[in-house]
Design a protein around this nucleic acid. Structure first.
Length: 359
DNA sequence: TCTATTTGACCGAT
DNA sequence: ATCGGTCAAATAGA
């Protein structure tokens, strides 16, 4: 039964990916023949839509076919879950040791979020998750304090995901968001909503009721969860770091990969799990989902991802001093995920339905 | 009343 | 000893 569902999802996925590639080829022709801007936009929209559907299929498949528990053996929910999170240790030292031991094994990665001034929004984009701030610290050598956030559902669901948000010294419009640990809470299924509902403002509203961050009090250096219009901020994935080879088989956001990750022998597994991970999607939305363009079903992505190989590059050409931020995809050329970077830099002869692609 | 944020203190790592 | 990360009491806001 499970297999049937997976087969179905895989066919959908293959179909969508193939369609996306066909459209990309058409787009390439359009570019070569300098056709109208509108025609290219339509094609891009269709391509992105295809990939969105494909990713949806992947995501569903991930949950249908999940054979491993989402919570890993090193992250027993009993430590934070049903029992009171504070009740685990009458011995505070033991508690702390456990916490630090666990944290060390958590995967981590960094994103950089650029906020364009003049949008009236001061903080980085919503990354799709609900976070609760638990600390703020002045960091040596940094002009701005670092904010510490953990998943709102940490106590309720034992979700160990945390993130640190720090405004960049060099460019205050850039927020470096350091993620640690993957979400094991139910909000991680955010992207599992039907595409139609996701691409509407209603969908976002509905989402907010469950796991979407609320508007946060305005403050100088942050709210990382404010909703920013898709052009109000660039969501730049700078790098991802994996601290060990154990946890990286679990879904974590990876987009794009770093050399560290590329060296990982588990690239394929990592790729799959990364793409399956809802956080991957969560990080794209709602920033990448434009209510205004919902009719065209355009999966509005960060310009950065699109332009990393030149397309729409003008969106970021004024930020040449941040090329390190967007150069990561090229450094991951050997990584499967690097080739899946929405860069449209596709091998025209590559076939998604190559049986080995999903092996 | 409940939930989130602030902030000084504490603790482990280096 | 210093620094970064987390805790937890106090506080704020809905």
């Amino acid at each position: 039964m499970e297999k049937t569902v997976l087969d179905c999802e895989q066919k959908t996925l293959i179909g969508e990916l193939n369609q996306g590639m066909e459209l990309a080829k058409q787009l390439m022709n359009h570019i070569h023949h300098s056709s109208s801007h509108e025609a290219r936009e339509v094609l891009i929209g269709k391509i992105l839509s295809s990939y969105e559907k494909a990713l949806s299929a992947l995501n569903w498949g991930a949950f249908v076919g999940q054979t491993k528990p989402i919570v890993s053996k090193t992250e027993s929910p009993s430590h934070f879950g049903n029992s009171s999170p504070r009740s685990e240790g009458s011995d505070p030292e033991y508690k702390h040791r456990e916490v630090y031991k666990k944290r060390k094994t958590l995967p981590k990665w960094t994103e950089q979020v650029k906020v364009v001034s003049g949008t009236g929004l001061e903080g980085p984009v919503d990354d799709g998750y609900s976070w609760r701030k638990y600390g703020q610290k002045e960091i040596l050598g940094a002009s701005f304090p670092r904010g510490y956030y953990r998943c709102t559902h940490r106590n309720a669901q034992g979700c160990l995901a945390t993130k640190q948000v720090q405004r960049s010294d060099g460019d205050p419009t850039i927020f470096e968001v350091n993620y640690r640990g993957r979400h094991t809470c139910s909000q991680s299924s955010r992207f599992n909503m039907a595409p139609s509902s996701r691409s509407t403002s209603e969908g976002l509203k509905e989402n907010r009721n469950t796991c979407h961050p609320k508007q946060q009090p305005h403050e100088e250096e942050k709210p990382p969860q404010e909703i920013v219009s898709e052009f109000g901020a660039g969501h730049l994935v700078k790098a991802e770091e994996l601290e060990n080879g154990e946890d990286d088989k679990f879904p974590i956001f990876s987009f794009p990969s770093t050399p560290i990750e590329s060296e990982n022998a588990d690239d394929n597994i990592f790729f799959e799990s990364s793409m399956l991970n809802s956080h991957f999607i969560g990080s794209l939305s709602p920033t990448f989902i434009s209510p205004a363009t919902s009719e065209s079903n355009i999966f509005c992505m960060s310009p950065c991802h699109i332009n990393s190989h030149g397309l729409c590059h003008n969106l970021h050409t004024s930020e040449s001093d941040h090329t390190d931020i967007i150069s990561a995809p090229t450094s991951a050329a050997n990584s499967p995920i690097g080739n899946f970077d929405f860069s449209l830099d596709l091998d025209p002869y590559f076939q998604f339905d190559n049986p080995e692609f999903f092996s």
